[in-house]
Amino acid sequence: MTTQEVILHPASVVAELKKNNISHVVWLPDSETNFMFQLLTNEPSLSLVPVCREGETMAVSAGLWVGGKRPIVLIQNTGIFESGDSIRGLGLDINQPLVMLVGYRGWSRHGLTKDSAARFIEHILHAWGISYYLIETDEDADRISLAIEEAERTSKPVAVLVGTEFGS
């Protein structure tokens, strides 16, 4: 088994969340964001809200948003597929400025993309008209700020696809 070079560090992501005054991370852990866990847990400015299934995240986020907080969702691309009705009904339909950090399982710039989770995700986001950004390295992390700004400006969900394993 080969692993990709570690080039995106969780501190870069957390710094973006802090810079944007994110209050809550509503998440279901996955392999692409596994290394975020310790840093998120130790960050006093962020409250973690773990859920049992990804479709819950958009709904919890909606409640937090209406209640005055600034949540962000952190799930895997497989969870986007599971969450279709939540994204439609409690993201797009209610104009929630929902930012979804999405672990891009199967992403590769090399050779065939064998994992259907990777092959379908961008098509699904296009179908819903959801704008998205790809981050692979620390240098890309400021795209999280761009996504947050776009979500708030357009009052629409925006995705950030995390196309690499996080470093420790």
Binding site: H24, V26, S47, V49, V51, G55, E56, M58, A59, V60, S61, A62, G63, L64, W65, V66, G67, G68, K69, P71, D85, S86, R88, G89, L90, D93, I94
Partner: peptide
């Protein structure tokens, strides 16, 4: 009153988010 329609089953999660925020 915060009626939730359009995403059946998710009222409990919306209420959770609101409870954490307030």
């Amino acid at each position: 009153d915060f009626p939730i329609s359009g995403a059946m089953s998710k009222a409990s999660n919306v209420a959770l988010g609101l409870a954490l925020a307030q």
